[in-house]
């Protein structure tokens, strides 16, 4: 569904991604594991068109999308949940959802704010609250909900468990499994191996802008040395 091949990205003069390749299949959850600064977020942004890759290809459902503006990539059915959440703090919860709203494609069952409030009950109570006044966990739920309003076929989830209390992390894992059950493919970036193992079908480990490992979560946990080297866990 999503194939990334030999991606090279730069920030100014700094070479961040060195030929990153990965793929996500239909309805699959793939975790991109790595430490801070390993290149996870840059990979996500390069796929989404927020960072323009200097070389390499990104193919989504057969279409080459590298170098296209972000809004056109989003319209193809690629959703992006950024690491730093980036909710619109001045808008209410409902208005945040409105910004993300796009029509459903084909046979997809469209997401509505009501369906999302079932998935994230915390948000339901705060629907008219200013988003900036909510807790970090609620804001994280709102970013995911906002992206889902666009009825994406694949969601790029950038470190959803970062800086969130363990209780909310549980809820988040539950919600992501729900999405998987809906048939939505997910590329999840994580530092937290346990969280990733809860939900991922496959894992890829990135370090220094290069993919160092790919396989199943089980295979990774059977290689403690590799785990220690790449993830410091």
């Amino acid at each position: 569904m999503l194939e990334v091949a030999d991606l090279n990205s730069f920030y100014g003069g700094a070479h961040i991604l060195h030929g990153v390749s990965l793929d996500v299949g239909q309805g699959e959850v793939v975790a991109l594991l790595g430490r801070n600064g390993a290149g996870k977020s840059t990979t996500m942004k390069s796929i989404m068109g927020l960072v323009r890759p200097r070389s390499g290809t990104v193919t989504f459902e057969g279409q080459a999308i590298a170098g296209r503006p972000a809004y056109r990539i989003a319209r193809l059915g690629l959703g992006y949940v950024p690491e730093d959440r980036r909710i619109f703090t001045d808008l209410t919860v409902l208005e945040n959802l409105e910004v993300g709203c796009r029509a459903a494609r084909g046979t997809q069952r469209a997401w509505t704010s009501e369906r999302l409030f079932e998935l994230f009950p915390n948000l339901a109570e705060r629907r008219s609250a200013r988003a900036g006044a909510m807790s970090g966990g609620e804001q994280q739920m709102l970013t995911i909900a906002r992206t889902l309003m666009g009825n994406p076929k694949l969601v790029l989830l950038d470190e959803p468990s970062e800086g969130i209390s363990p209780l909310i992390v549980e809820q988040m894992a539950f919600a992501i499994r729900q999405l998987k059950a809906e048939g939505i493919a997910i590329l999840l970036s994580e530092q937290n191996l346990h969280f990733a193992m809860l939900i991922a079908d496959r894992v890829q480990v990135i370090e220094g802008g290069r993919i160092q490992f790919h396989g199943t979560a089980e295979e990774l946990s059977n290689q403690p040395k590799l785990r220690e080297e790449l993830l410091a866990l």
Partner: peptide, 15 residues
Amino acid sequence: RAATQDREMVGALGV
């Protein structure tokens, strides 16, 4: 109003 705060994010949401 959303773009006033974060126009790049608005773009990433398909606008």
